[in-house]
Amino acid sequence: MPKISHKGKKMPESPIRKLVPFAESAKKRGVNVFHLNIGQPDIKTPDIALEAIKNNTIEVLAYSRSEGSDEYRQKLANYYQQHDINVAANEIIITTGGSEALLFAMGSVCDPGDEIIIPEPFYANYNGFSTASGVQIVPVISKIEDNFALPPIEEFEKLISSNTKAILICNPGNPTGYLYSKEEIQKLAEIVKQYDLFLIADEVYREFVYDNVQHQSVLSNFGLEENAIIIDSVSKRYSMCGARIGCLVSKNKDVISTALKFAQARLSPPTFAQIASEAALETPQSYFDEVTVEYKARRDLLISELGTIEGIKVASPKGAFYCVVELPVDNADKFAQWLLEDFNVNNETVMVAPAAGFYSSKGFGTKQIRIAYVLKKEDLIAAVKILKAGITEYNKH
């Protein structure tokens, strides 16, 4: 019988999506499932983006340029300049989602067997991207007790070897919601310059920051013109996850020219989705002001409600729309599946994302879950009540 590749066998399942069959089965039994497991915003996509598609008169849906359309990249450069990120259109490559941008970044700076240091827990698909690229993740552990702040820079330095090519951060963080301070980014800037490494920053949640704290981009005045690579996406910013448009941004000409070769190999990013994304750049600031107020209110409500559950630890996020919660259960994976298979309150249950899949270190996060607070407030209240009742019932067994 033909055999599957070793790489294919090593590809991890998504901790976010692997429970979907159990959720679908629950729904077929008539159980309403509150989805706290996935970062799919319920915020409406800006009308201006949708109208750009509806009112388009394209007669031939042709390839776009491999690096993305000139018009979109120029407008995107203007957007970055408004956020104190001074880049030009030719320093941007449009990708099919932030996911492809990460794959291009890894392919451009790493050979098989090379290493990237990443603070964990981290976005689960970094595990998949690294496996697909033949790259080794070297984790440096951040702790819920420290609110998942940047680990001491000495911990990074201990892990640097001749195979180390980059440090990768997500800022604000998925799954933690942690927002790195200017001082923390400065420490990372100093170490990557000292050891000639790249600093790859996944900044897709840039707009979602709370408590009057400012987001710090790696391309804002840290002297990282040759070291920094930004990964970005329209998915969360404009509630356009299905558009699958992202980008890779760098002032390093070798990075851009190399990433372009990967872009040429896959031909081009989606034409219609670029049109929608270009139009979305005209979204007024009032949209983001309203969205940020709504997410902050949801965060505050969620943290307050979770605080009523005895024995849990909750990290308080400063950005994005996630938080990591440590539960008083033996195993969060088993608990999450049990919630969907065997438990409901008035025919309702919740779906969460077990956090072990957001670590690469074995045995970490086994009692933790990630909650995405992308539901309206009344649904968050109902979901936490079900979670509380579920913990009590589960621990009786």
Rank of each mutant, 00 (worst) to 15 (best):
P139I: 11
C241R: 10
F148G: 13
D232K: 02
S233Q: 04
N212E: 14
N227V: 04
K193A: 01
Y180V: 01
I231W: 04
V213L: 15
S162A: 10
E154R: 14
G173C: 08
E183H: 10
I137T: 14
I230Q: 14
Q194L: 12
E203A: 03
A243M: 11
A201M: 12
E226C: 02
D146E: 15
A243V: 03
E207Q: 13
S181Y: 06
S181H: 04
L197N: 00
I153Y: 07
N221L: 06
Q216I: 03
L197D: 00
P152E: 12
T164V: 04
D202R: 02
S220L: 01
V138K: 15
S161Q: 08
L159I: 05
F208R: 08
Y180L: 15
Y195C: 00
D211I: 00
Y210V: 00
E154A: 13
V204W: 00
E207T: 03
C241S: 11
Y195D: 01
F148T: 06
R206H: 06
Y180A: 01
V218Y: 07
L188H: 00
I185E: 03
N227D: 07
E155L: 14
P172N: 05
L159S: 13
Q194D: 08
T164W: 09
Y178V: 06
E225D: 15
Y178G: 01
E203S: 01
N227Y: 07
A201L: 02
R244G: 03
A243R: 03
V192Y: 04
R237S: 09
R244I: 05
C241Y: 06
K187N: 13
E225W: 05
Q186M: 07
G177H: 08
A243N: 11
L150V: 12
E190P: 01
G242R: 05
R237W: 02
P151W: 12
